[in-house]
Deep mutational scan, measured.
Amino acid sequence: MASDGVVVEIGKVTGSVGTTVEIPVYFRGVPSKGIANCDFVFRYDPNVLEIIGIDPGDIIVDPNPTKSFDTAIYPDRKIIVFLFAEDSGTGAYAITKDGVFAKIRATVKSSAPGYITFDEVGGFADNDLVEQKVSFIDGGVNVGNATPTKGATPTNTATPTK
């Protein structure tokens, strides 16, 4: 695992066909100046998982989280898009600690492993708008004895992609 920078880890949970599971997305290594904004994309298989919603985690402190935390689910493109932009203008609602960034709610549709993997990152910046190093650890849903650990090695991303 990367020793510096922010680590975004997609949790690994267990479920069975027809059940709804909650998959946490963790941030670790949050910089001392916090995270003022970030955007990134995960990939998944809508034939295996139906993403039914995404909720902000406990490290989102904006009293009205829909102003700073936004997501979009595109089953036709097989992606989930995340956007966080601190909304106070003063840094008061920045992410300042490690913990759960988001909770992905999904219904298991198939007995195949439900991988959720890193696809791309736009950027991560602290309260001074300084770009942060970030790496990703894939996860998803274990169905029966299947284990979604494909790509469990962190993917280092030093520069934003478009």
Rank of each mutant, 00 (worst) to 15 (best):
A2T: 08
S3Q: 14
S3E: 10
S3H: 05
S3P: 09
S3Y: 07
D4R: 08
D4Q: 09
G5D: 14
G5R: 11
V6A: 04
V7W: 14
V7R: 07
V7G: 04
V8S: 11
V8L: 03
E9V: 12
E9Y: 09
I10C: 07
I10A: 04
G11F: 05
G11P: 07
G11K: 05
G11N: 14
K12H: 10
K12A: 07
V13R: 09
G15R: 10
G15K: 13
G15P: 09
G15T: 07
S16F: 11
V17L: 07
V17I: 03
V17D: 13
V17F: 15
V17W: 03
V17P: 08
G18H: 10
G18I: 14
T19N: 14
T19W: 03
T19F: 06
T20A: 10
T20W: 07
T20M: 07
V21N: 15
V21Q: 05
V21H: 05
E22F: 13
E22L: 05
E22Q: 11
I23C: 11
I23A: 09
I23V: 05
P24G: 06
P24E: 04
V25K: 02
V25E: 02
V25D: 01
V25F: 06
Y26N: 14
Y26C: 11
F27I: 04
F27S: 08
G29H: 07
G29T: 12
G29L: 05
V30Q: 15
V30N: 15
P31N: 05
P31S: 11
P31R: 10
P31C: 00
S32T: 10
K33Y: 01
K33I: 15
N37F: 00
N37L: 00
C38Y: 01
C38K: 01
D39S: 01
D39C: 00
F40H: 08
F40Q: 03
F40D: 06
F40G: 01
F40L: 02
V41R: 00
V41K: 00
F42Y: 02
R43C: 04
Y44F: 05
Y44G: 11
D45I: 13
D45S: 09
D45Q: 04
D45K: 13
D45W: 08
P46G: 03
P46T: 06
N47K: 05
V48N: 08
V48D: 06
V48P: 07
V48T: 04
L49C: 04
L49I: 04
E50V: 08
E50S: 10
E50P: 07
E50H: 08
E50T: 07
I51K: 08
I51S: 07
I52N: 06
G53I: 09
G53K: 09
I54G: 02
I54Q: 02
I54C: 03
I54T: 07
I54V: 04
I54Y: 02
D55L: 05
P56V: 11
P56G: 10
P56S: 11
P56A: 04
G57S: 10
D58M: 06
I59P: 07
I59Q: 13
I60C: 05
I60M: 07
I60G: 04
D62M: 15
P63D: 14
N64G: 02
N64A: 08
N64V: 05
P65H: 15
P65Y: 12
P65Q: 09
T66G: 08
T66L: 05
T66D: 04
K67C: 06
S68V: 15
S68C: 14
S68R: 14
S68Q: 09
F69V: 04
F69S: 07
F69W: 15
F69M: 03
T71Q: 02
A72Y: 00
A72D: 00
A72K: 00
Y74A: 00
P75T: 03
P75E: 04
D76T: 05
D76P: 06
D76W: 02
R77F: 11
R77T: 02
K78M: 04
K78H: 06
K78G: 13
I79E: 01
I79P: 00
I79N: 01
V81D: 01
V81Q: 00
V81N: 00
V81G: 02
V81Y: 01
F82Y: 15
L83P: 01
F84C: 02
F84W: 06
F84G: 00
F84L: 07
A85L: 13
A85R: 01
A85V: 14
E86G: 01
E86C: 00
D87L: 15
D87M: 15
D87T: 15
D87P: 15
S88V: 02
S88G: 15
S88C: 06
G91E: 11
A92Y: 13
A92V: 07
Y93N: 10
Y93V: 14
A94K: 04
A94E: 07
A94H: 02
I95D: 04
I95A: 10
I95G: 02
T96R: 12
T96E: 13
K97C: 05
K97P: 12
K97R: 09
D98G: 06
D98E: 10
D98S: 09
D98W: 04
G99P: 01
G99V: 10
G99I: 09
G99R: 13
V100N: 06
F101A: 07
F101D: 04
F101C: 04
F101M: 14
A102F: 07
A102D: 06
A102P: 00
A102C: 13
A102T: 10
A102W: 12
K103D: 14
K103E: 06
K103T: 08
K103N: 07
I104S: 04
I104A: 08
I104P: 06
R105G: 11
R105S: 13
R105Q: 10
A106R: 00
A106L: 10
A106D: 01
A106W: 07
T107L: 07
T107A: 09
V108Y: 13
V108C: 12
V108P: 09
K109W: 06
K109C: 08
K109Q: 07
K109T: 10
S110A: 14
S111R: 10
S111F: 11
A112C: 12
P113G: 11
G114Q: 05
Y115N: 06
Y115Q: 09
Y115K: 06
I116P: 01
I116Y: 06
I116D: 01
T117I: 14
T117P: 04
F118S: 07
D119C: 05
D119T: 09
E120H: 01
E120K: 01
G122D: 00
F124T: 00
F124I: 02
F124S: 00
A125H: 00
A125F: 00
D126Y: 01
D126S: 04
N127A: 02
N127F: 02
N127V: 02
D128N: 04
D128R: 10
L129Y: 15
V130E: 07
E131F: 01
E131D: 08
E131Y: 01
Q132A: 10
Q132M: 03
Q132K: 08
Q132G: 02
Q132D: 01
K133Q: 06
K133M: 02
K133T: 08
K133P: 05
V134Y: 02
V134N: 04
V134L: 03
V134D: 00
S135N: 14
S135T: 08
S135Q: 12
S135W: 03
S135Y: 12
F136V: 04
F136C: 03
I137E: 11
D138C: 05
D138R: 10
D138W: 06
D138H: 10
G139K: 05
G139S: 12
G139D: 06
G139H: 12
G140D: 11
N142M: 09
N142Y: 12
N142F: 07
V143F: 14
V143H: 12
G144H: 11
G144L: 12
G144I: 09
N145F: 15
A146G: 07
A146K: 12
A146W: 04
T147F: 09
T147Y: 13
P148M: 12
P148R: 07
P148C: 08
T149P: 11
T149L: 13
T149E: 11
G151C: 10
G151D: 09
A152S: 10
A152Y: 09
A152L: 12
A152N: 10
T153W: 15
T153C: 15
P154D: 14
P154L: 10
P154W: 10
T155P: 10
N156I: 09
N156Y: 11
N156W: 10
T157S: 11
A158N: 12
A158M: 09
A158L: 10
T159I: 13
T159K: 13
T159M: 10
T159Y: 14
T159V: 11
T159C: 13
P160T: 13
P160L: 12
T161G: 08
T161Y: 12
T161R: 10
T161D: 12
